[in-house]
Structures are given as C-alpha cells and as structure tokens.
Design a protein around this nucleic acid. Structure first.
Length: 533
DNA sequence: TGTGCCGGGGG
DNA sequence: CCCCCGGCACA
C-alpha cells in the first residue's frame, strides 16, 4: 500500500455532515461516502468548536457512537494535529484528479477551511476508513441515500461537490458484510483512548489532543485486511490514555480501553488473540495485572490472563498447556486501578513505549517468532512509517511507528536485507504492493528458488564438463553454486543474465597467450568454473 | 572497449 | 559430447 496512494485517496473523502462543502468548491469534495452513515446528531452548525457527536448508523448491531471531542479549536492551529491536517489537505489538492477510480473509503475529513467561520485546522475530527474496494459499493449506495435524505438546502451543496463514483463496482452482500465489519472495527479504532501512544501521556493537553486526532485518523484508515490487527492493537490496554476530560473519558472507558477493559475490543480481539477471557469492568477500583516483561506493557484484568500471557508470549510455552511453574509470577505485577482514573494510572505505568504496535506477543525482544508479526506489520509501505502525513496510510504500520519506532524499523528493514530483498523482488509482493500480506508471504514464496536455478544449473552443467580437467576446482565451485541455490543473489532476475563475477577469470589470470591454461569453460566462452565468485 | 558468458552451431 | 563462435550485457 503506497502511502502516497493512500494519501491521495483519503484526500477526497466525504466531509462529515457536509459541513465544509463550500470550502472546496471547484474541487471534488464529496468523492464518495465510504462510511455508511456518519451523521452528526444534534444541530449542525457549520463548524462546531465544542464536542461533536458522531454516530455510525451502519447497522443495528454495529451502531457505535463516537464522540469526538473538539475543544478550543481556536488557537489550536499550531498544534501538531492541526498542522498535519493542513498538510494533508495541501497534499490532497494536487492529487485530486487521479483519486476517483478506486475505492477509497469514506472519509469524514474535517476540512481545513481558512476563512470560514474562523475554523482552524486542528479542530476537526478525522474519520478515515481506508478499505479500498470493499466499501466502495457501500459508498455508492450510501451516497444515493444520503442525497435523498438531505434537506434541500444541503442537497445543493452535496450535489455540487459530489463526484460520481465509478460504476464498475458491483455491490455484493458479501462485500457489505465486510464493510459492516470494517465499520464496526473502525468505530472502535476511532477511539482516541485506545489509540493513544504512551509518549502522548507526557504531552501537554493540546498537543496530545492533536496526536489523538492524527492517530485516530491513521487507525481508522486501515485497510480491510488489517482490521483484525487494529483490534488486536487495542488488546493492549497499556496504551496510555491522554488526560481527557472526564465526560469524554468515561464514555470511552466503557467501550475502548483495551481487551481487558473493553468488551468490544475483547470481542474483536479474543478470536485472534490468546486471551479469550471475558471481562467486565465496573466503574470502581480494579485490580489489574501488568506484564513487566521488557517492552511489554500488557495489562490484564486477571492473574490467570497475565500468567497465560507471560507463559505463552514471553516464556514461549504452549498455550494449550496449563502447566505453570509459577515463573510467570516474576514477570507481572499487580496494580490497583481506579476506573475513573484508569487513564492516568496506565499512563504512569507506562513510562516507556507500550507494546501496542501489533500483536504484542511477537514483539518483545526475547521472542524469536517475529516473522508471525511481520507479515502483519509489513502490510504497509515502510517508507511512510514515520510520517504523520500517512494519516490514511495503512494503519498497521502507522500504529507501529507511532509507538515504537524501533519496532517498526525492525520489521520494516527486513525486506531490505540482502536475502530478503531478493525474495521480495522475486514474488512481486513487495512492501509497496499493499496486498495486505507482506513479508511472510514473500518469504514463503517459491519463485525465489526457481529464480536462482537458471544460473546454478548452468554452472553445474559446465562443472560436469570441466571436471575432467579440473576436478578439485570444479568440486569447489559445485559446492558454491549449490549454496547459491539456497540463498540466491539479491539481484538475480528472471530473464536476465546473472551478475558478472568480480573474481578474475581465466582470461585475465592467464592472458590470451596461455589460453590452454584456461579452464574449459573459459575456453569455450562459458561461465568460468575455475574462478567463481 | 575489454570481459564474461549465453545461445547456438558444427563435427 | 567436444569445441567453437556470434553476440549481448556490463564495467
């Protein structure tokens, strides 16, 4: 998934509530409405500086309220979030035209509209859903419905800013289901509390709010293939939450404080994660168990849960085995958390970066089964990892970069490695393709081996020929070439010649005068078998 | 331009 | 097979 691509796509989303349609007159403001229904309840002032309630009315079962706290937009223009939004918009401007062909999701993007009601960039809420394709059809239907439902006064602006979506997409029930699921997850992922990076805990309110917005945007912009990961992300409650205002805080706490706190999160998490323990939380003091493993800030509500976590994740013991030697006890601590101040409590508990980036189990250094996580992490292009502008970039990577630069780097750098680089180039599933399955797929892909065959095979053939004259040398080369099969050269590309060796060949060593001293291959103008690389 | 070597052909 | 060479890609 190309970050730039995402950027372009996200730039053409739907404005929630159609508040800023006029802002982009002449440009495509409403490409398509990807989010089924994002309507704002209550009055609809052009721009609201106070809290705004967004409601996802996608389905009875998936309805979720997302409350976006917007406070003090004014004077917030200098906040990171504000600036980022601004940049995003600028970026989007140039790319508007090529953004219509495929499905980008819907985006409820607070458009920064200088001059209109004094609205500042920082005061908007981002609702990005990057689910290319899947939500496209939904968007179409939604748009149609939306147009019908909008009041005449609003309809005009809608239609004027509306840009038709390609009709080549065929709606399907299956797709709708996926969209629904995606939307549900999206609503979850939009929760600032869950997404908050630990670093933000120490950031002043304004800055942290901006962060929240950025993160929310990036989270919600994940592709369909990554939804599950988003959920898992939330399974790590250790993510510190920003000191939100109480009312907002409470509203979030009940629904999005990680797998041990959030029912929703648990539901979406336990099926893919190791901690299926259902947990209900009451609004009072609660004993929590925090994993003390290095770089793992996991906090669970039950001792058994944390023990299992440690046992399976850090101690590498089989999950289905209930055996416990008590060693886990050393790796977690019991903490008391006041639900009302859970946020702060968690923040203080996680001075270091929490392991919110992806499946926590795989990231901690002690573990060796990193590859499992990598296929997830690599979904996105690593190039945009650290970029805040990647608001609409694959969420997976964004998550990582947000909290763990060092962790993001590791998986990201993998494809660049000598061996892997070769692999990637071979199967065409490079990081940039954005297929949703990155690295691990690449590693498993067989083409790599085949790709290397032509060269080595040739050599082997020649070796057999030359063996008559230079047994020793040939034996040696044979071994080398076989080894090459296992680790093919990074640059070997099917159809092209193998890279010219650096070693001197017979011609150079002996010269034309002593041509009879050349190896057979050299004399025959074949690949030298005596001086191989 | 020299070199490495692939592809092809003659014997 | 053995031997040779045209021709291409690359440094």
């Amino acid at each position: 998934m190309d970050s730039r691509y995402m950027l372009e796509k996200s730039s053409v989303g739907t404005r929630v509530g159609g508040t800023d349609f006029n802002c982009r007159a002449g440009r495509s403001v409403l490409r398509d409405a990807r989010v089924p229904t994002v309507e704002r309840s209550g009055p609809m002032p052009a721009y609201t500086h106070g809290p705004v309630l967004y409601k996802f009315v996608m389905d009875a079962s998936s309805a979720a309220d997302v409350k976006s706290e917007r406070s003090s937009s004014k004077g917030n223009g200098l906040s990171p979030g504000g600036r980022i939004l601004h940049d995003m918009e600028k970026t989007g401007l140039g790319d508007q035209k090529d953004s219509g062909s495929s499905g980008i999701l819907k985006r409820a993007s607070p458009t920064h509209c200088p001059g209109i009601n004094g609205q500042l960039p920082g005061g908007f809420m981002h609702l990005d859903i990057s689910n290319p394709g899947k939500q496209a059809e939904l968007a179409s239907s939604f748009r149609a419905a939306q147009v019908q439902n909008v009041p005449p006064s609003e309809r005009q602006s809608l239609s004027s800013s509306h840009i038709p979506v390609p009709r080549n997409r065929k709606p399907s029930g299956h797709a709708d289901k996926e969209v629904m699921a995606a939307t549900v997850l999206t609503s979850l992922s939009t929760s600032p509390l869950v997404l908050y990076p630990s670093s933000a805990s120490t950031v002043p309110e304004p800055a942290s709010r901006a962060w929240k917005e950025v993160l929310s945007a990036s989270y919600s912009s994940s592709t369909s293939g990554n939804w599950s990961w988003d959920a898992s992300d939330q399974s790590v409650p250790s993510t510190p939450s920003p000191p939100l205002s109480n009312d907002t805080n409470k509203s979030f706490l009940l629904s999005s404080q990680g797998d041990d706190v959030s029912e929703d999160a648990t539901e979406s998490t336990h099926f893919m994660f190791e901690d299926p323990i259902p947990r209900k939380r009451k609004n009072s003091m609660k004993v929590m168990f925090k994993c003390l493993w290095k770089n793992c800030e996991k906090v669970l509500s039950t001792s058994s849960g944390i023990q299992r976590h440690i046992r399976t994740v850090h101690l590498g013991r089989n999950n289905d085995s209930d055996y416990s030697d008590g060693e886990e006890d050393f790796y977690y601590s019991e903490i008391e958390v006041n639900m009302d101040s859970l946020t702060e409590g968690l923040s203080s508990l996680t001075p270091t970066s929490p392991t919110t980036a992806g499946p926590p189990p795989v990231f901690p250094p002690p573990l060796t089964d990193v590859p499992h996580s990598e296929h997830i992490n690599m979904t996105g292009s690593q190039s945009h990892a650290p970029t805040l502008l990647s608001q609409s970039a694959p969420s997976t990577l964004c998550h990582i970069r947000t909290d763990h630069a060092y962790q993001a780097t590791a998986p990201v750098s993998i494809p660049v490695g000598p061996e892997l680089a070769g692999l990637d180039s071979g199967n065409g599933t490079g990081p940039g393709t954005g297929t949703g399955n990155g690295i691990s797929v690449s590693w498993q892909s067989p083409p790599v081996i085949f790709k290397g065959v032509p060269g080595p095979v040739t050599h082997v053939r020649t070796v057999s020929i030359g063996e008559k004259r230079q047994p020793a040398a040939n034996t040696h080369t044979t071994v080398n070439k076989n080894h090459a099969l296992v680790t093919p050269p990074a640059k070997s590309t099917p159809g092209t010649r193998k890279p010219r060796g650096e070693a001197k060949k017979c011609r150079k060593v002996y010269g034309m005068e002593k041509r009879d001293m050349w190896c057979t291959a050299c004399r025959w103008k074949k690949a030298c078998q005596r001086f191989t690389d």
